[in-house]
């Protein structure tokens, strides 16, 4: 089975600073793979491991800074055979429509594929829209919330965890499936895996042009702080009295 896994490279929100004017400063943030996309990579690797002769290729779209040696190796150290990355500042901050269009181009370059796995949602927008937009662009089926999947005869038999039910589905391939974090815990890549990752093929390219924007960002600011009392107690009785009074 030929599996593609889409992942987003994002700034690490632990490194984000709030500037004096309330805007967020991402300039010094390290680049990392978006949290739930690590689960998607693991899911892809596990599906591949269960089906002999499978390949896993990662596809990713982002700004120039996404072309980061450590991050690329981190992707390839997790059971991924090859990486296709479009890294160009013209591709920074793309909405789901534009991202899907760019991912579709990379999918075409990655060769034949049976399934494209995406994560639950990205760390920045958590919009859960890129997978379905990609499926629409490619004209293939889409299911989300997938917690398990087995390949069977041109199909993927999958379980989806929805808000109030678990649904069993047969997805005809090729298809795009978005996996829930519960599908698989990301592995811890060992030193050997990371060293081997450095020798795997990495196809990095720029943009063919700046895609049109479907959504315009107006502002990004730190949230207004809720005014809290911040009263510290060291006497349990006084603490209990304060809690009781608040009820």
């Amino acid at each position: 089975m030929n599996i593609l896994v889409a992942c987003k490279i994002v700034p690490d929100d632990q490194d984000v600073k709030v500037a004096g004017d309330g805007s967020l400063d991402f300039s010094r943030a390290h680049k990392v793979v978006s949290t739930y996309d690590l689960n998607a990579i693991e899911a892809a690797a596990q599906i591949a491991a269960a089906n002999d002769g499978s390949t896993v290729k990662a596809i990713s779209v982002g700004p120039k800074k996404a072309d980061d040696s450590k991050t690329k190796k981190n992707i390839l150290a997790r059971g991924v055979d090859e990486l296709f990355l479009a890294a160009d500042d013209a591709l920074d901050g793309l909405d789901a429509f534009a991202t899907a269009a760019e991912l579709a181009k990379l999918a075409a370059k990655a060769g034949d594929w049976d399934v494209i796995v995406t994560g639950d949602g990205s760390a920045d927008l958590y919009a859960k829209q890129t997978g379905v937009q990609l499926a629409a662009k490619l004209g293939v089926p889409f299911v989300s919330g997938v917690v398990s999947a087995e390949a069977a005869d041109g199909k993927l038999v999958a379980k989806r965890l929805l808000e109030s039910e678990e649904e069993t589905v047969e997805v005809p391939l090729p298809a795009v499936v978005s996996v829930a974090p519960e599908f698989a815990e990301p592995r811890i890549a060992g030193m050997k895996d990371i060293l081997a990752a450095g020798k795997k093929p990495m196809n990095v390219e720029g943009a063919e042009g700046a895609p049109a924007k479907a959504v315009e960002e107006v502002s990004v600011k730190a949230p207004a702080e809720v005014d809290r009392k911040k009263e510290m107690f060291d006497d349990v009785d006084a603490f209990a009295a304060a809690v009781k009074a608040a009820l």
Partner: peptide, 23 residues
């Protein structure tokens, strides 16, 4: 914002050349 409705929204947005602003 349920998974199924998000799928429907995404399919319509794709057709319109739009992208949903979610949450």
């Amino acid at each position: 914002q349920t998974l199924r409705a998000l799928s429907l929204v995404g399919r319509l947005a794709a057709k319109l050349g739009a992208a949903a602003i979610t949450g």
